[in-house]
Design a protein around this nucleic acid. Structure first.
Lengths: 280, 280
DNA sequence: TCTACATTGTAACGTATATTTCAGTTCGAC
DNA sequence: GTCGAACTGAAATATACGTTACAATGTAGA
């Protein structure tokens, strides 16, 4: 990682230790001993922990080349964030085995992370919204995720009336806004390389009072700012594209939960549909 | 870790999400999406990132039971420090009964079984077929799986020309047969409650010499009898419907493998597309 | 011992930040 | 529709913090 003084603050610290005054060195040692947490405290408390005054801490930071204590802390946080990034299976160093296995492992990790991070309140609230048959339902997705929206729509149409998958050109979407009001529920799918068109649509729909449910990735589409409910999935995959497995998990779990919520009604509907299909 | 909302702030957040007002919930989502780094910023910047004002952040923090924003940040730092000491290895799951967890576990089992059971020769042969740009490609699925076909088509269209997703009424499918010959590749998706229409279409296409790739379930659609390559996925799920996660895994792994197979060509195409989209 | 310089903490300062107040707005219930 | 309650952000306020100036102390070399 920082075997030689360089990239990280810790490395630079070890390298520049000689240029520091005795008390500044105590600060450096304190930071290295409790890295990087000690540096996230206030300058005064950091100093106290090292047994020196705040100005000594500031002088040490300045010698490292930081313009301010804040800049120093920002850098520490950035290092922390980079380290936390994908603790498992990160950075193209795969002893490249089978692509299917590699993808399966990534997808499994995504499903785990998704199941863990979806807030149950949001999930349950969404189920109730979908199960409420009086509310018209509209589904829509981005360039790739629109297929997931179609998948969900196909299933929900079996469970309840008034399920619309909004298709076609973005310009045509807005025709739908005419009839969208407070009662309507819009389920949107939007992951990385977030769609501007979707955002505009969501904003207008929100202004008209529609309830917006957003299924997005772990970094949250900007649509989250106007969404009533947000369901985040994890999507990283060993590919040029993200994986939609987490989105699919949310969709399938939602539909299963809606069936459970509706109980006998849904099953009656399913059976009726079966009879219709068979033609008797 | 936080199998049940409690110990960590993240868990408490997910549990108390219901008590929060809409904008407070945005704050919570932002924190969960970028946990815990988002909370280490100043309240104002944290709020800005979530699209709300600083007071809303403070109110949310107060509802969590913290006396001040500083106390909240101290707690986050403490969690970070604790996590750093014990790298990973956590296995806590939610008390079962949670539909998302149940579905995730089933889907994970399906992915494992799928990765294990897909014959590598079939997978590799399919990759080569798709990567061959001279061969026109047609994709088609059943009532629910057609969305998976659309998903795959959307990705493949980026990688190569001549990718057709066959849509619309089954009667209209057969128009396509006019121009289908030995060069054409047809990728079909068909799982339980196998589609008669799809079978008929596959048989006619096979008679005209088209190469048929079938993505199906572990029990194999009857189309397997006329298919050149068969890729079986495991689909059982705790729901009235099967899960398509295994199909999605195959699709995503295939597209990733095609990109790898095509090498620089595919990446050039991707970059060219990016430029076109940006308009420069 | 004296002087020049480096080192360090105290205290004062100004700014950035958390916190509170309050008025405008939205939303749901009747 | 009308009313009341809940929600939210702008602005005002208080506080904590980083930062700076300066005096006290220590240190090295004549």
């Amino acid at each position: 990682m920082d075997s030689e003084g360089g990239a990280s603050i810790a490395g630079q610290l070890r390298r520049d230790l000689g240029r520091l005054t005795p008390n500044e060195r105590r600060v450096a040692h304190r930071l290295l001993a409790d890295y990087p947490m000690a540096g996230l405290d206030t300058a005064a408390r950091f100093g106290e922990a090292a047994g020196v005054s705040a100005p000594t801490v500031l002088r040490m930071i300045a010698k490292l080349g930081f313009a301010s204590y804040g800049a120093f802390q920002d850098r520490l946080k950035a290092e922390l964030a980079a380290q936390r990034e994908t603790p498992l299976t990160k950075g193209g160093t795969r002893p490249d085995g089978d692509p299917l296995d590699a993808f399966a492992l990534a997808a499994i990790a995504n499903l785990r992370a998704t199941a863990e991070n979806v807030p149950r309140e949001e999930f349950d609230a969404t189920v109730r919204l979908i199960a409420d048959r009086r509310r018209p339902l509209h589904l829509l997705g981005g360039r790739f995720t629109d297929a997931i929206a179609a998948y969900m729509a196909a299933h929900l149409r079996v469970l309840r009336p008034q399920v619309q998958h909004i298709e076609g050109q973005p310009a045509a979407w807005f025709d739908r806004l005419l009839d969208i009001g407070k009662q309507d529920v819009i389920i949107l799918f939007d992951i990385r390389r977030y769609s501007d068109d979707l955002l505009v649509f969501a904003e207008r729909a929100a202004r008209q009072g529609a309830r917006i449910v957003l299924v997005t990735d772990q970094w949250l589409s900007p649509i989250s700012k106007v969404a009533r409910h947000v369901l985040p999935a994890h999507v990283p995959a060993p590919s040029v594209w993200d994986s939609s497995a987490g989105l699919l998990l949310i969709v399938e779990a939602l539909t299963a939960a809606v069936v459970a919520e509706q109980g006998g009604t849904a099953r009656d509907r399913l059976e009726a549909l079966e009879r219709l299909r068979r033609g008797d």
